[in-house]
Write a protein that binds this DNA or RNA. Structure first.
Lengths: 226, 226
DNA sequence: CTACTCTGCCCGTACGTGCGGTCAGTTCAC
DNA sequence: GTGAACTGACCGCACGTACGGGCAGAGTAG
């Protein structure tokens, strides 16, 4: 039962901590935060509940750490592909390609984040993650406004449009199966086409931005697949 | 299933049952299913926990009843406005107008349904609600396919498009404030414009279908605002 | 090299609490 | 009388977390 496994005492310092967080994240993704519990995580890793408490203190803080890690990565990568793309339709498409790709690249963290997003709004101790989420949304709103100013997108409410787009992406966790027949590239392409066409982008530019081998998708893949 | 009790012999007999369900629904909307509990609902209504158990048996069945009621209403109303509209872009727009309207018309039930929708997929005892949900989605997919066949929508994956649309609508509970400055009609109009334009509908038809005083919105309002 | 201490990881247990659900019994309309 | 609505006490359990201690490696003094 003890399953020593620690085999290398001198090694893996702090590696345990990451293991715990990864397992906890998977449990949150599968059952939701409320039903995820220390006991199951501990027994799966062959540790005691006390160890988890030692590393993280409280359950709240564990979730906060999951959210912050996810958002920090998303923010970093978003800034990276924004720096590499200049056309508004490519930039917006990259957000979609990247957002879909997270579903297969790191499904556990992505699902854990998306199904517990609501806790960012009210729960205390989530200020950092909330600020990161707002910053991310502002990046998208900025792209929408820039595109509008440049005449690439037809005029409209950029904030509402960003929420419409995030809704489609954040809802994916309820139906998308990473192991399923439907390839993430196909989903991203279809979402890009409908979205960009809906913003008034000309058909040829839509096709290029949605293309899984086009500049936006390639850039997103390179940045995310690091 | 009992559903008698409407008689009201002097007092609101059986009205209690509805009161309980309404309060429970609100608690689920505010805190989520896991954190909603019998004790709080009972004390808010001035009854004992035993009474709730007497009426509903288990917590699971209470949630199932909430979901089934919501979906039955949505299905009935969807069929009603489909019978009154013929053009694919109007039909699709009506789904959007209605979906947004539910957020203000019955926010508690809508939010309770949307935030606990994931339980339809795996939890046992949810077969009825799941079938209703699938039927509703099939209605939308049907409209998308019809519109495609009629040449109103550009070809594409109807199922994916329906999921893209549902995502935008189901995500609203995380950000939309019924008391806020943003009117539901404005949200519906913006969502309709982006969506229909994204499906290749000509601009004049888009404007008509998205218009809060256009046929689709008026029809949805009449049906929903029963 | 030895002995001692310090420190960080980890364990096991125990506690308090909250919650879903049970049950025997009471009230009250028909 | 009959049966539904309702009560309030109670049970059992799951879970977060506090706590005291064990144990191995690093540093240090001799």
């Amino acid at each position: 039962m003890t399953e020593p496994a620690t085999v290398a005492p001198g090694r893996a310092r702090g590696g345990r901590r990451d293991e715990i967080l990864v397992t906890f994240t998977r449990h949150v993704a599968e059952r939701g935060y409320d039903r995820a519990n220390f006991g199951d995580v501990a027994s799966e890793l062959g540790l005691s509940k006390g160890t988890i408490v030692h590393h993280f203190g409280t359950k709240d803080r564990m979730l906060a750490e999951v959210q912050e890690r996810y958002m920090r990565r998303a923010l970093d990568e978003a800034r990276a592909f924004l720096a590499r793309l200049d056309r508004p339709e490519h930039r917006l498409a990259a957000f979609v390609h990247a957002g879909v790709r997270y579903q297969t690249d790191d499904p556990a963290t992505t699902i854990a984040f998306q199904r517990e997003v609501v806790r960012l709004t009210d729960e205390p101790g989530m200020e950092t993650a909330r600020a990161q989420r707002d910053a991310y949304r502002d990046l998208v709103v900025g792209v929408l406004r820039d595109g509008e100013a440049a005449g690439v997108f037809v005029p409209g409410d950029a904030r509402l449009r960003s929420l419409q787009m995030f809704g489609s992406l954040h809802w994916m966790w309820t139906w998308f199966d990473p192991q399923g027949r439907l390839a993430p590239e196909a989903v991203a392409a279809e979402f890009c086409r409908t979205l960009l066409r809906g913003l008034g982008v000309p058909e040829t530019a839509v096709a290029e931005a949605a293309d899984p081998d086009g500049p936006a998708a390639v850039c997103a893949r390179e940045v995310v697949g690091s």
